[in-house]
Amino acid sequence: MTEVPQERTRVLIVDDEVEFASTLAERLQLRGYDVTAVYCVEDAFNAIRQSPPDVLLLDLIMPGTSGMEALMTVKSAAPEIFVVLLTGHLDIEKELEGMGLENCNFIMKPVDISKLITMIDGATREMPSEKRLEAS
């Protein structure tokens, strides 16, 4: 696997907690990802329509449309997007298994950044971004 800087992995973060989403976005940007953060499901749909990301970080609990509904919508429209659900609960794994969704994972809040990076890179088969951070 070779690093292709101009084809950076594009990540879309959807979370109603602005502080969380923006900070996480900044941290990922520092690690070389092309990150956009939006703070509601509608904005997320718009962003996906304009330019679909490689990875979608989706908060499960948000006002209005729930993360699960958003997940179903995104999965039916663009199944190629790797979705990581952000959740407070341990046992979402079983629900996901039950739904039979592919190209999908979850991570618990507060987020362990190295775990998230491993997950994203594993899905997009890229070089671990940690190394890029160290190199820069």
């Binding site: 907690e17 502080e19 969380f20 900070t23 996480l24 941290r27 407070g88 809040k109 507060p110 987020v111």
Partner: peptide
């Protein structure tokens, strides 16, 4: 948990 996540990110 949510503010904790923010503290964590910050």
């Amino acid at each position: 948990n949510n503010p904790l996540a923010i503290v964590n990110e910050k």
